[in-house]
Design a protein around this nucleic acid. Sequence first.
DNA 1: CCGCTGCATCCGACGTTGTCGGACGATTAA
DNA 2: TTAATCGTCCGACAACGTCGGATGCAGCGG
Lengths: 253, 253
Amino acid sequence: MHAEQDPPIKSTATSLDIVETVHGLGGATLPEVVEQFEKPRSTVHDHLKTLTDTGYLVKDGRTFRVSVRFLNLGGRARAESQFFQVAEGEIRQLASDTGEHANLMIEENGRGIFLYKVKGSRSVNLDTYEGMEVDLHTTAMGKTILSEVSERRRDEILDEHGLEPVTAKTITDRDELETELDDIRERGYAIDNEERVEGVRCVAAPITTDNTVVGAVSVSAPKSRMNGERFEETIPSEVLSTANIIEVNLQHV
Amino acid sequence: MHAEQDPPIKSTATSLDIVETVHGLGGATLPEVVEQFEKPRSTVHDHLKTLTDTGYLVKDGRTFRVSVRFLNLGGRARAESQFFQVAEGEIRQLASDTGEHANLMIEENGRGIFLYKVKGSRSVNLDTYEGMEVDLHTTAMGKTILSEVSERRRDEILDEHGLEPVTAKTITDRDELETELDDIRERGYAIDNEERVEGVRCVAAPITTDNTVVGAVSVSAPKSRMNGERFEETIPSEVLSTANIIEVNLQHV
DNA sequence: CCGCTGCATCCGACGTTGTCGGACGATTAA
DNA sequence: TTAATCGTCCGACAACGTCGGATGCAGCGG
């Protein structure tokens, strides 16, 4: 089964691991990184020095931080993706029409990536940032993606990543998720009722071409503004409309 | 002089070099990468395989591309930077007020990084992307940064990166640049008259705290909309106002 | 003022592992 | 089909990443 042979160049892999560790800790000192690794100080030190020498980490006093240098790589990767180019304007329009956060997600390696996020005029600060990765079952966008992939693929993803809760309302039961996904397929859109962040609700719709899901759109807002008809009618129809426009535009690329 | 000792872990450095090569070529096949390196196929292959195994490159048929995975690292680095947090809203406001592209730049290692870019309602597509690096002398924002750093630092930067032209109007003469910088200091803002992209003009202002420049703001637009009073009065005053607001907000962090 | 502690950096020896030429199979083009 | 190009794998050698320990530095408490 799981071949899982490690990559040919291990030092590169550990360097990248260290970057992710620093990233995960939101900045870390050498001993803090050492603690997460089973490697000796001197080894970790060599990696950190290499990464700062090459400009991918920056040393802020005693703590290392991930450099915005990575934004150059990731930003261009995004800018070159046709999906982003097509969707960008529509997401901005959606944010402008609703006055709330509008988001774009893609799936990669079984997890969701916030590819684009636009704040609306009334929107509050959320903890999301462009490039952020989340488990698919924790967001409305992720659930629409799960609802559109094959059962086989869905099992793969759920087996690998599980159903870790992030709030009290996160779906953690597989059967419950399946009925939820049935509902989503029927309705055509998904909702997230404080399943990832307390007090925040989302409405999301999948974006598909040739019966394959390529991403999802959503609107996020504090639940005080996401209720009643707006939550059940207005926002869903705007989200669905945006998803549909993007789908149509994707045909003509 | 230039100690220039290479980083302790060379394989990591070459892996990152390969990522940048793929990035620079906007996607490349194995032989294309080999051509840029003096390393044998098999070595490059090992690096590419490691990078795809770890998910930082994606293989699209035969060509390797930089993964949006990097956006996760760079996006969070940006999101955590106080400068970005303070400036973000103001840049968006500036784009909304002018209807044109509004940009935010910081300097790192002597080059300019587009930290944030917001399209305005009327704005055209530009070749810039968030995270993009440019030589400082090629942009209005970069010139304001050059105008605010010490002469010593300016010499360092210019010695290292030179004055490479990117359009016919790029400033390539050091004396000419110095007089331009004098003008900028006097006026308080800089203009870019098709010095980086044909047909595009920019107006930029520096952002300083404690007499140290920390970045710059600008508005970019096609020259057909950037002329007369708008180019000489309206836009500059809006850009200066935005820079000033950001400066004030930076005091209270 | 002086030892003490924790840290970053450096060093040198060992042995892992990255390197590289070459070979094999797959793929493409003619 | 042939020929050329490409992707992948393999194995031997030597380079270099690893790791324990030593050095030097900064901050703290006695």
